[in-house]
Write a protein that binds this DNA or RNA. Sequence first.
RNA 1: GCGGACGUGGCGUAAUUGGUAGCCGCGCUAGACUUAGGAUCUAGUACCGAGAGGUGUGGGGGUUCGAGUCCCCCCGUCCGCACCA
Length: 920
Amino acid sequence: MEYNFTEIEKKWRNYWREHKIYKSDIDHSKPKFYVLDMFPYPSGAGLHVGHPLGYIASDIYTRYKKQKGYNVLHPMGYDAFGLPAEQYAIQTGMHPAITTMENIARYREQMDKIGFSYDWNREFKTCDPDYYKWTQWTFIQLFNSYYCFDAQQARPISELEEVFANQGSTGLNIAQTENILFSAEEWNSYSENDKQRTLLNYRLAYLADTWVNWCPKLGTVLANDEVVRGVSVRGGHPVERKLMKQWMLRVSAYAERLLQGLDNINWSDSLKEIQRNWIGRSEGAFVQFHIEGQEETLDIFTTRPDTIFGVSFMVLFPEHELIKKITTPEQQQEIGDYMKWVSSRSETERQTDVKKVSGAFTGAYVIHPFTGEKIPIWIAEYVLAGYGTGAIMAVPAHDSRDYAFAKHFNIPIREVVEGGNIAEEAFESKDGICINSDFITGMNVKEGGRAVIQQVVEKKIGYATVNYRLRDAIFSRQRYWGEPFPVYYKNELPYMLSENELPLELPEIDKFLPTEDGEPPLARAENWKTKEGYAYETSTMPGFAGSSAYYLRYMDPHNSKEHFSKESNEYWQNVDVYIGGSEHATGHLIYARFWNKFLFDLGLCVKDEPFEKLINQGMILAHSQFVYRILGTNQYVSHGLRYQYDTTPIHVHVNLVHNGVLDTEAFKAWQPDFANAEFILEDGKYRCGTEVEKMSKSYYNVQNPDDLIAKYGADTLRMYEMFLGPLELSKPWDTNGIEGVHRFIRKFWKLFFNRNNDLQISEEEPTPDEYKILHKTIKKIEEDNERFSFNTAVSTFMICVNELTDKKCDKRKILEPLTVLLSTYAPHIAEELWNALGHTASIYFATFPKYEEKYVLETAYNYPVSFNGKTRFQHTFPLDMPAKEIETAILQDPITQKWLEGKKPKKVIIVVGKIINIVL
RNA sequence: GCGGACGUGGCGUAAUUGGUAGCCGCGCUAGACUUAGGAUCUAGUACCGAGAGGUGUGGGGGUUCGAGUCCCCCCGUCCGCACCA
């Protein structure tokens, strides 16, 4: 029989599907294991070879774990709400649901050809009402919760209402937007509206005014990366900074837990570090400064309370609410001009010229709490609205930004920490002694800081605190293609639908554009339900809403009564291995952790962290190929000769190039422009230039998995993708190398079939040498699989097959277990051979073979030799060498001789395979 | 600027985790079989040298009997954050 991969792969794909081989169910007799891929957003372009990389890895691991006796959950679905489908709908009028379904069908078709072991029974899309019902449901729970720092968990908002009724808002350690103080009497006298308005200050999903990039023409809020130089990337419409009422998630309440949780999960250091930086914990102090001649105080956050005697000005962010109250009449004009200039600048502009110093003086002063000195209050762009209190005490001597500001506006610079050269630059080191600082002079920076905080606390003008860079997430999008909020408005205050009204389905609309008066597209839905005459929220939820808890839903995807059952969650717990790109480090992977922790607080899921282990697969890049057209002609010059002419490089399709040599005839046939192309060759060949770039249609460097599967088969593709290099590394695709893997697969096939293509398997007992090859391989493959080193595993297979081919080994006892090993990497061919060996059940249910140590052991061990306990060197001896002889050999070793200096050792301790200790 | 990762043949990579550097594959060279080869098989392939031999893991230093691996300094590449007080 010939190795006809097309037939074989089709045959087994059908068999697996018909026999529901990959169906998974709760099975308490086996340990569970959950392997998850980041589900894809199905774009119109289909999959290229980079997309399945992680899926192949997770599939191999799934199959491996299954063979190791685990009950494995390995589901797949689609992140189906999102921008591209909606933009496409705006251009073509085609409903996003239709294009999304088409794209999904295409993705599924491509994925099926690769031979994945997904349990497709559990498939769902985030745009299914059955699914987004639970996204909406969770939102309602967030709305009905607040965060208590003492309990370190989310609590029902009703509990807070009780507390307010009994003791008011003072002295509570809870997450809040602003610190509102009221007594129990005041609370009890509030109207229902006042109460609801106040509660928004504490809810985990809340409605608040926020600064956003607003594009009036597109009628939506835009993210920073969607705005360049003040205009929208799409359409080039002007964008303004606007204070808008938006739904927010109080992610910041979980900052500490999100940070602490990182210590207990098995993620890469770099990814944890990215999240730590994103959360941005910093310890410092809040301090109140009294504003001269006003009741008001100015609150600031600082990480350097020790430098409080070096303060020479204060700065507010340009839209700070105090500005109006404190600006003196003389400064009105200047401040007004500055604020106008600032508001004309987009977030991006602001970020591009951070070096530029700008600001304006309000004319007002604060009183220094210790010296009583008058300190001027400025406003400036470099102070951010969203961090701390939006105001700082500026210490130019010890902060480079304050330094630049002080130099620019000629403000005094006071040195309060010894050691710098403040005539030249700010001295930011935290190692130093405080000087010119009243009661902390002479202390080191740390002590000084503590002393200042103590004084500030005594004066009741501040306290030590921890501040986080992590901000609350804006949760509304003025879009159509997303989850509708289960929210209606009464007296301009939001109320939630009840659970039996869910899902609130996305209504049909005539056009996917905002309304004339700037309402989101949902406002076009004329016959959309309204609740008792009150209007629904017209924004939809952002992309991360649907992807924040999908892994939980896979545990129990068809449950219509609950998000997922308690039983399923108690069995499957959380994801053991999660594979996906690192681009989600500060988005999805933060939101999902937040979301999971919230559900954990509600007692719905048993694990606090959703993803125990995370693997970031690298990106697959491409070698783009270039030809060099001589300017103004249709002549093309080979890469090595291109500098002899004036040329422009032109991207050429990678399929027209083999090992750097252009197929000139195929090139002529490729595009009409090139039909009459002439070539200037080197060594009789046209050599192309190459460059590593991202895979993109416009670079003609996209490799489509379908083409490769047609040419080499899915098994070859799977193994080659793994063979390319370590999973985590980004690496360029190089189709040339695939031949080597294909050769391996055919070689493996030939171990079973003789020259006439007849199955030829010997039932003879293998030789020890043959056993050694097998057991070495089992051990190595097991180790490689465990550490996700699939590239070295493929090499191991190749070595094994080379060795067996040399020995012309056709013994069943060798080949059968090898087939089981290979089935995780190349499931189709393995299944075919397994079947040929006489098995009727699928190889998927085979057990991972055990290796026998006696065949695996090398002939020698390295003995580390230590003198008086300190390891000195290692010595290699054959395994079967008696201990006495080892001792003699060690003592005769020149290094031992040198160390002994002629003395006789008291004792020599030998533990085979471990350590040799010589004691004097 | 801050933080992280990395640097090994012509190329992708490997190295029992401190123990013979370069496994496996691509490419290349030679040969065999072929009407033919972008098929298959065999042998070779880090560099210098005819050879014995010598040199080699970005550069420099250190620890060690022993360093690609550990420590310090420099150079370079990639990624993340970026006025976070």
